[in-house]
Every structure is written in structure tokens, then in C-alpha cells.
Write a protein that binds this DNA or RNA. Sequence first.
DNA 1: AAAAAAT
Length: 613
Amino acid sequence: MMSTSTSWADSAGADNPAPAAASSGNDRASGSSSSSAPRPTRSSYVPPHLRNRPPSSAPASADAPSARPGPGGPTSGSRWGRPSRDFGRGGGRGSGGGWNNRIGGWDRGRDREVNPFEIEDDPELAVSGEQENAGINFDAYEDIPVETSGENVPPPVNTFAEIDLGAALNENIRRCKYVKPTPIQRHAIPISLAGRDLMACAQTGSGKTAAFCFPIISGIMKGQVSQRQRGARTVYPLALILSPTRELSCQIHEESRKFAYQTGVRVVVAYGGAPIHHQMRELERGVDILVATPGRLVDLFERAKVSLQMIKYLALDEADRMLDMGFEPQIRKIVEQMDMPPRGVRQTVLFSATFPKEIQRLASDFLANYIFLAVGRVGSSTDLIVQRVEFVHDSDKRSHLMDLLHAQKANGANGKQALTLVFVETKKGADSLEYWLCSNGFPATTIHGDRSQQEREHALRSFKSGIAPILVATDVAARGLDIPHVAHVVNFDIPNDIDDYVHRIGRTGRAGKTGLATAFFNESNSSLARSLADLMKESNQEVPAWLARYAARSSYGGKNRRSGGGRFGGRDFRRDASISRGGSGANGYGDSRGYNIGAYGGGHGPAMTSAWD
DNA sequence: AAAAAAT
């Protein structure tokens, strides 16, 4: 390899021979070709149908991100470095008084329980973004805007110690190096522990998964151990966590396994595109918490493999996505037409970063006397993300992207390529752009719904590890995925929904780090101009004059208006319903007195009022 | 119109 200042992008032109990384511009090349002779990368492109090969077993090369000093100071360094393991394999699983120690639960399984913290130490096996909280600037929490509404909202806590989560869970919190609860955790955990239903708006990366997992795990530990038959045909999970993509379900599973380690609470994941029989065997070994995508869950239910009769906790991650047009019938079937206990009997929590009013109305069907909670983000929302919008005709997008990718290296990522996530509108467009990037010497890969699950997971791994530092993605990657070190999100095609834009750019600037988001705007996006300009204003971004003109020209209707006003999630639709309709939602609503607007002021000016008709 | 989610 040449000097560290010679990044892969240097070789994208014709002048230099391709350095190692450049020749690994696609999945197949991910490991084996990293030391291949320099040659034009054009020839290294492998068409999609030939890419479905198992990842190479080549050891982590010098390209592995562990060598990366990390521009963000000591906190970012700890992400890549091997975390010091200050706990032993058999770490205490103390069971305090009043705690059901669940002996006799899944004992046999526990003997074999893999230590998820050790797995994560292996960079080859590490899948999820670890130590989500470790790099967060907790000082910024003091200014976080919080909005709650509903009856008798339990007060927030300031420390994990204030909550009786149980010794085993506390130990895992320590292992995760979570020092203090994040804002969403401070508010949502007491609400959940009080048994209340919850609709929560909080940006991903702010500790959302833990916020809904801790109370579930704790509740199961405290609860009665029902005698369940290992190996029985039908299994009866106590908790169900649904998410809209397979990769997100995987990520939630990985994370919740850490939280549940040695608690005796078993977490199993089930999603499509992977062999169902393996998942069924895992279920037969016992399951307390089932993490699933909707389709596979329905399949397992129809095979009488899973019953929801014992469900005490239901969590929907990315809940607004789960309840939008495409998903809603499936979710309704699972929640209302299978054998799950009704709302009010089970406990239901919904989480997302965005919550359009009309979706809130739908969601209230699944909730009983719920609390609405909106928590802003560390570093006041998306201020951490520098948003740029550039006017680019469709025909110029590729060359413009190339310019950005070249410029990226000048941004100086300490000799390591920063990760760039490029969103496009269609699966075909994703394949085609990836092909073009690879053909031009850019090490790219792609993830979308037309690829096999193996290919999808491999693409994600290649991206995370830096083997393919450019990922071309459809909206399958827009939500929830925690990919550390995404420096740049490019909206090559601008999404049609402003909420999708919010989720997409949220893949960068995570955990207190800064990020850059660039969108390619042209006439075909004019319907989004107004909401885009408003969003940028709300997050203190400079709005180009030409975009402001588009915004002024366009009407502000349809689904493109901001769902919440303000800079985060949204606000309780029941407040508006009670004003304009003088009535409550379907199942009781809080009066305005529970409403606490915190530091959240002036978020929506007079112009926003019309969005709340 | 598109993406996602079961086989």
C-alpha cells in the first residue's frame, strides 16, 4: 500500500494503479483480492448473480478499521479498539430479593449461552454498532426538549440505580458501559415499568432499543415462570418485538441478547430470507422474547409454531413505518386477528423517530390509555448533521456523486476511508449505480430487497468493516440501522416523504458525532421543497436561496408536511384532536396538564399552524 | 411509483 494519504479515491481516476482497497469494490472481492495486483478495477466487477459467495475467511487486513485513529477523540477510539474486558465469563447473575431467579426456565440453554460481549470483541463477528451510549456527550442532555402527555405520567429517573431492574440486568448495563440513562431511557423506562402503554418519539441511536428492552427483560424476570415445555410443538413467547426490516430485527436481537445475558431470559429472532428450520429449532429451545419481522411471524403462527396467547409485552420499533399503508394490514392481523391478548391486557409500546398524525390515530387502536412521549436528541436534534442540498439534474447525478466522493478523501479521514451511504429510490437504480461506481474504481456494494438475505448481510458487513466504504441502498437501510462511522449520507434520489429523509440522514451524526448529508435536488423533487426547507430551518441549516424559491412556489399539502412540527419526532395527536374536535381518541386521552414542553419552544411558527388543521 | 415483508 502506498502512503496513507493515498486513499482509494486517488485511484479512481486513471492515473494511479489501484491500491488494495480499490480492487475490493464489490462483495466478492471483499477479502480475497485485498492483496491482488494493481489493475484496473473495471475488470473486478462481479455481476449480482455471481456475488452470492460466502465471505472470504481472509484475516482482517491493514484496511480493517481497527487501525483508524478516530477523528472524534477518545470516545471514537474506543469504538474500534478492543474493549477492555473487565468481566469474567461467568459474571455474577445475582438474584436479589423479590426476584424470580427463573431457575428451571431455560436452564439447559443458559449453560450454552454464548457470551454476546465476547462475540462482539471479534471484529469479524461484530455485527451491531456497539457501545451506542459510550460516545454520547451526556452533558448535552440537560437541554434536551421533552414532551409528555397522558394521564399520570410517571416522573423520569436520572440514574439506572434509581430503578430496580435487577442485579443481572444491572450487570449487563455495566458491561455495555452505559453510565447513565439517555433521555429516552430516563423517561420511557419508568413509564413502561409502571405498566403503561407508550407512544414514544426518539431518534435512533439515542438508546431506544434499551429503552424498550430493559422493562421487558426486567418484567419477565420478575414475573411468574410459567412452566413451558421445551421441545413442545408450539412455543409461547411473553414478549414480541416487531420491526420493518430483517436487518433491523437482527440488530435488535444482537443488542437485546446483551441486555438479557445470564438473566435467564431467552431472546430469539425470526425473519424471512433465512432458513426457517433453524429458527424453529431456536424457538423450541425456549423463547421469552421473540424479535421478528411480520411475514415470518405470520408464517410461524400459521404453522402453529408460535402462539401469542402469553404475550405480555408488545413493542413496535419504527412504529410509524409498521403502520403505514404497506404494512398496516399485516400488523393488524398479528395484533388483532391472531391470538394475542387485547390491548389493556398486554402492554404495548410504540417507538419511532417520526410519528405522523394520521399514523398516531391508527396506532391508538393498539393502545390503552397511553402516554405520549417525545424526546429530542443529544446535541439538540439534527444540529449535528450538516445538511446540504444541491441542484443536480438527473443526468449529472453520477458525475456529481463522483466529485463528492473525491472531495471526501480531502476531508481527511486520517488515511482511512470514511463511510458513505448513498440512498437511491429503486432497487434497479441501486444495482445500476453500484455497477457504475465499481466500474469506475469506487469500492461500493449495495443493499436492497432484490438481493438475497446472504447478500444483504454481506453487503452490510463489508460496509461496516470498511471493505466497501460506499453502500448504495434503497430505503431498506433508511431506518434504525446503527452503522458507526457513516460520515456522509448522500440522497442521490430525494425520497418522496420528508420523514424518510429524516430517517435516512439519521444514519450519520449518531451518538454525538457530527455527520454530513447531501441531497441532489431537481425539478422532480419540487413537491418536497417546502418541507425540506422547513426541516432545514428547524435544524439551523442554511437554506439555499433557490430552494427557498421552490419552497415558496410549492403548496404545502399532502403527506409531505412535517408530522410533528419542531425539530424532533412529533407531538401527541390527541392534543390537536381535543382542540379541533372537542373529543378524545378512541381510548381516553390525557388532558393538557400532563403536557410538558420543556425547553422545546418556538419550534413551530405561525406557518406551521396550517399543518395542524 | 417504489420499497418492504413469507415461500
